[in-house]
Amino acid sequence: MALLLDSDDAPSARWRPLARWAAWAAAAAALLAFPLAAGGFLTHTATLVLLTVIGAAGFHLILRVGLVSLGHAAFAGIGGYTSVILMMTFGLPWIVCFVAGGVSAAALALLVGPIVLRLKGVYFVLITFTFGEILRLIFNDWQSMTGGANGISHIPPPWPALMDTRAYYYLALFAAGAAILFCARLLASDFGRKMDAIRESESLAEANGIPVFAVKVIVFAIGCTLAGLQGSLQAHFIRLISPLAYSFQESLNFLVMNVVGGSNSLVGPIVGTVFLVALPEFLRGWVEYQFIIYGVILVVVMAALPGGLVELWQRACRWITSLSTRSGR
């Protein structure tokens, strides 16, 4: 694990290796034991969180080169529909469909990316928004393939044993874990450093020999692939897909997760996803106000806490350290 996440900017994380290993092991054990302790509903929710984290991590990668894609959910839709149609109409085995879900999203991203990535800032946001809406219209209007506005229901699970929510939880845990480790490794590699350089200043990065455009295309494709894989896994879990699940609002949710959690590190979207799915649990009886609260949180975070909840945590840690050093004297 330590090797996997190896990074040059390690001085900030000066944990003793043993404590670090213990923390990782405890977290892994807690995640593995969760469905045994929690009830069916909580396990269902946790599975949704794990699946959503995959897409949110993909969104995060794109955000790390300074881009906001409001077509992200539509790429999840591409993965979902491809996978479901291949399985239900053509009877292919699940693993083929799952891979095809990711590949189709990647192929589309590689096709569209070089075109839309010529635009920057708010113009990129607008064009991805538009592209996402076009895809949603296709999902909606291609009746014979997609089932139109009603979508497709009675989607079979990957294999019969996964009808059980607990079993699916472990599949989701494995997939989310793999996705997160891949993203973490990517961000800690030289490639990740190039991504951060691009976000800070495109022209300087270009002058320092970084092929800015090519890096952006690759990152966009990877991010969309993750969305596609999530779309596939989610469709076979909820066992229902419809255009509504891949609208602009869903892309917005990915943005909210990243911004609220924190857009400077991969921990951000993970925290943000948990927070956004867990929030309704804390707001029981306030269901109708939930989205109002989302909106307000989004504004407050943008105004006062650009690093999101992760930054809040870091600030708190620093505050506690400063308290303890003061009292120690």
């Binding site: 943005l255 939930q290 109002i292 989302y294 909106g295 989004l298 504004v299």
Partner: peptide
């Protein structure tokens, strides 16, 4: 832009 998205959600569900 992101903050205005927040306002949008809040007003809509308001």
């Amino acid at each position: 832009m992101i903050a205005s998205l927040g306002v949008s959600i809040a007003l809509m569900y308001g």
